[in-house]
């Protein structure tokens, strides 16, 4: 996991899968997740195993999440806003 170096950036509250976490203004969504001890962003479609951000600069597409209702957003590129709602990508259940 990750810990935060001393920062004076204001606190911001975002919701991850409905649960409130504290982030700091200027965080990307991925950084906010990592700082909160959340190491995954999606469940792999085939294997079903969890995946976390790998490159953190927009190439690997492992961190695509839904942000405020918009699917397929890069958690590593989008900056947090107070009250933002993040939904991690779940694997599709067979036959649903």
């Amino acid at each position: 996991m990750f810990r935060r170096l001393p920062s004076t950036a204001p606190r911001v509250e975002i919701f991850v899968d409905g649960r409130a976490i504290t982030a700091r203004s200027g965080d990307t969504v991925a950084a906010a997740l990592l700082a909160d001890g959340q190491n995954w962003t999606r469940e792999a479609a085939n294997a079903g195993t969890r995946r976390g951000p790998y490159c953190l600069i927009g190439h690997c597409h492992e961190c695509l999440v839904e942000i405020d209702g918009q699917p397929g957003q890069h958690a590593c590129l989008v900056t947090v806003r107070d009250g933002m709602r993040v939904v991690r990508t779940r694997r599709m259940e067979d036959g649903t």
Binding site: M1, F2, R3, R4, L5, P6, S7, A9, R24, G26, D27, T28, A30, A31, L34, A35, N39, W40, A44, T49, R50, R51, G52, P53, Y54, C55, L56, I57, C60
Partner: peptide, 30 residues
């Protein structure tokens, strides 16, 4: 990309990724 066995596990990231979050917003692997 460094495709070693197990590189898809959460907790495995690139070194550059660690440097990226160190620059901003200032995260250090714990």
């Amino acid at each position: 990309p460094v495709p070693i066995p197990g590189w898809t596990l959460p907790g495995v990231i690139t070194l550059g990724a660690a440097q990226t979050v160190l620059k901003s917003p200032g995260l250090v692997p714990d």
